[in-house]
């Protein structure tokens, strides 16, 4: 204790050390191993050797381009859907929630209390061929008679949208909640219609929430394979499905490792492009 007193400046490092060391050893170092593995060649029976085989990246991309494109496409559509679906509700809770705010937020995170896989299986039940949803859609001629929803891209996108919705709704709510109502009143005092005040004041001020929600939804969605596996057909498989089967079924580690890095790279590029579009200030504002 005396020693600590004398070296007070060390205190924060002592407190940080165990946790950060754990993250370094079991998060950063594994990424290094993954990078190393992605440049190996060989197979499980004869062993792998490090050969700088950059070809793994090329062939991963050319062989599985549809899955990469589909991952970005499905995740992108699901993110936009989640944004459009949850913005009005986040707005309603933030501005009209009153003393029910906490309860309404609890209802938004309620799906998280049911195991991820179980709620996805519930969608399998809801969208099954003899379920009510499919029958209604058939009545409305939105689905051809004898057609399916399950085992289509629509079902996969619907599942992803649902499963990551709270990741979108919560940051939206937080940013809308923080808006100073006097700013909106000021706009209205200056003869802005309430619609115009919403567009010119509320929406720009909620942008940090939009950015955070978009990232929090898009990133896990692009790497997801559960929805595609349970709600989709093989032709709806995403890159996560390929990585998963290469690692755990085909034991083609180098190819799978290369794909993991391409996925990460693609996400970083998508995020960076998005950050350019909306401005990095918003992005760094949301980071921790």
């Amino acid at each position: 204790m005396k020693w600590f007193h004398r070296h007070r400046g060390l205190m924060p490092y002592v407190m940080l050390a165990p946790g950060l060391a754990f993250l370094a050893v079991f998060f950063l170092v594994p990424l290094g191993f993954l990078a190393y593995q992605s440049l190996e060649s060989g197979n499980i029976d004869f062993g792998y050797a490090f050969t700088w085989s950059w070809g793994n990246y090329g062939s991963a991309f050319t062989d599985y381009r549809p899955e990469f494109v589909r991952s970005i496409e499905y995740a992108g559509i699901a993110t936009i859907l989640a944004l459009v679906l949850s913005y009005p509700v986040a707005y309603w809770i933030a501005f009209r929630g009153g003393r029910w705010k906490n309860l309404l937020l609890l209802m938004i995170v309620a799906p998280f209390f049911v195991t991820y896989l179980i709620r996805t299986l519930a969608w399998e039940t809801i969208l099954s061929d003899n379920g009510v949803v499919v029958r209604i859609l058939q009545h409305l001629h939105l689905v051809s008679p004898g057609g399916h929803v399950l085992a289509t891209g629509t079902a996969v996108i619907a599942g992803i949208t649902y499963n990551f919705l709270p990741f979108m709704a919560l940051p939206l709510y937080v940013s809308l909640e923080q808006i100073d109502h006097r700013l909106i009143e000021a706009a209205e005092d200056l003869y802005a219609s309430s619609w115009k005040a919403f567009l010119k004041v509320t929406v720009p001020l909620s942008l940090p929430g939009v950015v955070a929600g978009t990232l929090l939804t898009f990133i896990p969605a692009a790497g997801d394979f559960i929805n595609a596996q349970l709600l989709g057909a093989p032709q709806n498989h995403m890159i996560g499905n390929v990585i998963q089967s290469k690692f755990l079924e085909l034991t083609d580690y180098p190819a799978a490792a290369a794909m993991s890095f391409i996925l990460m790279g693609a996400i970083i590029v998508a995020v960076a492009a998005y950050a350019r579009a909306v401005g990095t200030e918003q992005l760094s504002g949301t980071a921790v």
Binding site: F33, A256, L263, M264
Partner: peptide
């Protein structure tokens, strides 16, 4: 980081 990348990298470690 996507969960699948975390899972895969720990697996290789």
């Amino acid at each position: 980081t996507p969960e699948i990348v975390m899972g895969a990298s720990l697996l290789t470690l």
